[in-house]
Amino acid sequence: MAIIDAVLGDITTQSLDAIVNAANSSLLGGGGVDGAIHAAAGPALLEECRRLRETTHRSGLGVGDAVVTGAGNLPARWVIHTVGPNRHIGQTDPALLASCFSRSLAVAREVGAQSLAFPAVSAGIYGWDSAQVARIAVETVRTELDEHGAPELVRFVLFSRAALADFEAALATPADAG
């Protein structure tokens, strides 16, 4: 049975198979989690993202989609990039947010990742309420793990105690109560 947990910390220090980057659609770095991951990974990550833009993702990565690269200097093996919906520009459909988590898990399964760390996708500068992100993320991850079984460990690595409390509350809610 898979384990889902939540911790306060820095996602760039997670020694798991993969970490998820809350990327912007350009895949070329940005602020927040995206900037921290690119800074910690070093130039190899940016180079892989540039190759994606030159080949399979010429127009960038769509909202709710996910794609994988190597992890450069990070302790993880892979970085799975996903683009969360931005509430400030009217992207308010919870299905778009859920897709970030389900697509990231699908990509993790494709590469064989057995452990994966997520940030609170869209809860930062993209304006989504952390408690809503937590509910959608936990529900989506539970459903995916029930249906597919892998990865064996999914960890939410949160940037603040408030976000951690939101994810702990969502995890404490029984799966059939949501």
Rank of each mutant, 00 (worst) to 15 (best):
R142I: 02
A134Y: 09
G149A: 08
V133A: 11
D146S: 13
E152L: 10
H148E: 01
R142E: 09
V157Y: 02
S130C: 09
D129R: 15
H148T: 07
L145D: 01
I136N: 01
E139H: 12
D146E: 14
V154T: 10
P151C: 11
P151K: 05
A150V: 11
R142T: 05
T140Q: 02
A134H: 03
G149Y: 09
H148R: 14
L145P: 01
A134L: 08
A134G: 04
R155I: 03
A131T: 07
A150C: 05
A131F: 10
L153E: 04
P151S: 02
A134C: 06
E147T: 14
L145T: 06
A150D: 08
R142Q: 12
R142D: 00
L145M: 06
F156K: 02
A150K: 13
I136S: 01
Q132F: 00
V133H: 11
V133Y: 11
V133M: 08
E139P: 02
V133L: 07
F156G: 05
P151W: 11
V138S: 10
V138F: 12
E152C: 02
R155L: 03
T140N: 01
A137N: 07
D146I: 08
F156H: 06
G149D: 10
P151M: 06
T143R: 14
L153N: 05
T143Q: 14
A150E: 14
T143Y: 07
V154E: 06
Q132L: 13
F156P: 02
E147F: 11
L145E: 03
I136R: 05
F156Q: 01
R155P: 00
G149P: 04
R135H: 12
A131W: 03
R155N: 03
E144D: 15
V157M: 00
L145R: 00
V133S: 07
L153C: 03
